[in-house]
């Protein structure tokens, strides 16, 4: 996969001139960039499936059971399709709020139908916020220390 992506990246631009590429991108991202995107999407999808499979297998081994390969592949595919739906929802939520970036609130809003799930996500987001604050404080302290040492 990675070799293919390298070929796509280094071969196609040499065929077209820069202006043509810009025109192609302006028209709608067709041509070499589309091929590149397609390859990159396949690569990302495979990586996603691999991590999903590893999570599922670790869960199964925790329970001391065995699992057939078909089931694991099905779970991975299910998770990928769920991710596509989730991403579309998140994009629409962000656009509706006139934002260019997806927020934590958007993700929690995606799971608003399941109270347990939204509660879980809310606690997780609070933990993340606390961790971020601690990290920022540490960084500021380190910056101050560095300033002192330089002075």
């Amino acid at each position: 996969m990675e070799v293919n992506i390298f070929i796509a990246r280094f071969d196609f631009p040499s065929i077209r001139s820069e202006n043509q590429e810009k025109e192609m991108e302006a028209v709608g991202g067709s041509g070499s960039s589309e091929v590149e995107n397609d390859l990159e999407m396949k690569l990302l999808r495979d990586r996603f499936r691999l991590s999903a499979i590893s999570i599922a297998e670790s869960q199964v081994s925790k329970n001391g059971m065995e699992v057939s390969k078909v089931v694991v592949a099905c779970v991975a595919d299910l998770a990928f399709k769920y991710t596509e739906r989730l991403a579309k929802d998140l994009q629409l939520f962000a656009q509706h709020a006139n934002r260019k970036s997806v927020n934590m609130e958007d993700v929690i809003l995606c799971a608003h139908r399941n109270e347990h799930l939204s509660g879980l996500l809310r606690t997780f987001s609070n933990d993340l916020k606390v961790k971020d604050r601690q990290y920022e404080r540490k960084r500021k302290k380190e910056v101050k220390k560095n300033d002192k040492t330089t002075i």
Partner: peptide, 23 residues
């Protein structure tokens, strides 16, 4: 549209919960 770093982490957690719940 881009995604926040913390939002991405939260999404990962959601997906992990989805897979674990299925299993």
């Amino acid at each position: 549209t881009s995604a926040n770093a913390s939002a991405l982490k939260l999404t990962c957690e959601l997906l992990r919960v989805f897979i674990t719940e299925a299993v």
